[in-house]
């Protein structure tokens, strides 16, 4: 009788985790072959990209990165990037850094390819938005380490699992900020598109996406940052790159190695953040890329300043 009134037994045991596992096992058994194929595909894409980044002389690639920074922003970022990259080379972290960069770039692309259409869909349909919102909350608030367990079971130890976990963790901002960006577009401007007989695809392409671009780019920036942090964590499951170095630094208590890897992550993070942030904040069509294009496509005669502002 006393037992029956203790708080401990009022609530029956809930086997949430076990239920999840049972369902997951069935899932894995059914689609095992498919996951193997996907895993192989991801592995080859990331490995190929990493090898491509590692192929040239590190210093040459560092200069290319610096040029890229100058193109989208200014010479200050270019110099900063170059110094940062040289530091990574000096710490002998270049190869793992490029592996991580490859993982981050590919994971980001996957997250955007999945996330932006979902965000557009959510912006157009309140029902989809209502369903996606809790799913996104779930994906984002679940501790990153937890995602490592199912992906290892599905894909085994290696880069493929690491990338899938990274995509899951980095996806939500792509969806959320795309939806937000499109919803923020002035409804009267969208109405104007309709009033002049534009179809919904034209309105999306010519009005909503260009006007949502700054918010969308903020989403891309967030995705990259989350992908980078997750890519390091994914070193635990054989993600390779800087994550690997961090894991081995922990297991051997090697402070020097830990710092070298950590600083490399910070440098990569700052480089990627500044690069994408400046793409997003720029006024459309007013960048250095446009200037260069104008310079090379126009004849000298009409190279007169087209913009007075």
């Amino acid at each position: 009788m006393i037992e029956g009134t203790t708080p401990l037994t009022i609530v029956p045991p809930l086997p949430v985790g076990e239920l999840f596992e049972t369902g997951f096992d069935w899932f894995k058994d059914t689609f095992d072959a498919a996951f193997d194929a996907i895993g192989d595909f991801i592995n080859s894409v990331i490995d190929g990209f990493a090898e491509l980044l590692q192929a040239p002389e590190p210093l040459v690639l560092a200069i290319v990165f610096a040029l890229l920074a100058w193109l989208v922003r200014d010479w200050k970022l270019a110099v900063g990037s170059l110094v940062g990259m040289v530091v990574i080379i000096g710490m002998d972290m270049w190869d793992p850094a490029m592996e991580t960069l490859a993982l981050v770039v590919v994971a980001t692309l996957f997250a955007l390819v999945i996330g932006i259409p979902l965000g557009i869909w959510a912006a157009r349909s309140p029902a989809v938005s209502r369903i996606l919102k809790p799913v996104m909350d779930f994906m984002q608030t679940m501790p990153g380490f937890v995602w490592l367990v199912p992906v290892v079971i599905l894909f085994g130890i290696g880069v493929a699992g690491a990338m899938v976990a990274t995509v899951i963790f980095a996806l939500p901002p792509a969806v959320r900020l795309t939806e937000l960006g499109i919803r923020q577009v002035d409804s009267e401007v969208v109405e104007a598109g309709h009033a002049f007989g534009a179809g919904s695809r034209q309105i999306l392409k010519d009005i909503q996406l260009p006007l949502a671009l700054p918010t969308l780019m903020a989403g891309v920036n967030q995705v990259i940052m989350l992908a980078l942090s997750m890519a390091v964590i994914a070193g635990l499951v054989g993600g390779g790159g800087l994550g690997n170095e961090v894991v081995s630094a922990i297991s051997t208590l090697d402070l020097a190695l830990g710092f070298d890897a950590g600083i490399s992550v910070v440098i990569l993070a700052i480089f990627l953040d500044r690069l994408t942030a400046s793409i997003g904040s720029r006024r459309p069509g007013h960048g250095r890329l446009r200037e260069l294009r104008d310079r090379f496509t126009r004849t000298p005669a009409d190279r007169t300043p087209a913009r007075v502002s």
Binding site: E191, A192, D206, P284
Partner: peptide, 11 residues
Amino acid sequence: MVFQHFALFPH
């Protein structure tokens, strides 16, 4: 149509 708040395309 002409709109109250102009509804021009800012970009």
